[in-house]
């Protein structure tokens, strides 16, 4: 009796194990922030900097940002009303606090509700995660700014932000 069940149990164990491993691989370890897939949004928000994942900031942040595109971190990034509405919709639906975002909760830890932070790189969790990066690396000619995620995170454009 025992002998007939053993291969079955082994097989199921192996299946479960690979399912866990595969699941992890798909999620890209611990830091997956779904990249922008809407082509209009991707182009409008990803020409001057990478199209930051909407799931990296809460909806209140995006709302505030979209209300002030005329002064977008010192730049006039205004777009026509129709495009702005599309960008807003997309960001609201996929914001960090919109639900269903696996790793966003971690990134929003320590962010006061309704505080609408504008810089991802000033989120307490972001700062903590990057505390060991030395100054010279930030100043490196291929990095230059903390907003240049892809300089170090080779798969940032695909949504993976592991080390």
């Amino acid at each position: 009796m025992n002998l007939t069940y053993r291969p079955l149990v082994l097989g199921i164990t192996a299946l479960c194990f690979s399912a866990i491993v595969l699941g992890r691989a798909q999620a890209g370890g611990n830091h997956f922030y779904a990249p922008v897939v809407d082509q209009v949004v991707k182009e409008e928000c990803g020409s001057c900097h990478i199209a930051f994942a909407p799931s990296m900031l809460p909806a209140s942040s995006w709302q505030r940002m979209m209300g002030n595109l005329k002064n977008h971190f010192g730049d006039d990034a205004s777009v026509d009303a129709e495009t702005a509405a599309r960008i807003s919709r997309y960001h609201m639906a996929n914001a960090a606090d919109a639900g269903g975002q696996r790793y966003s909760g971690k990134l929003l830890k320590g962010v006061a509700p309704g505080s609408a932070p504008q810089r991802i790189t000033e989120l307490p969790a972001w700062v903590r995660e990057h505390r060991k990066v030395p100054g010279w690396e930030w100043r490196h000619k291929d990095v230059r700014t903390k907003a240049n995620c892809a300089a170090c995170h080779a798969y940032a454009e695909q949504g993976y932000y592991d080390e």
Partner: peptide, 9 residues
């Protein structure tokens, strides 16, 4: 390369 963000153009 974007002068501020370093993004490839």
């Amino acid at each position: 390369k974007h002068a501020r963000t370093g993004k490839a153009i």
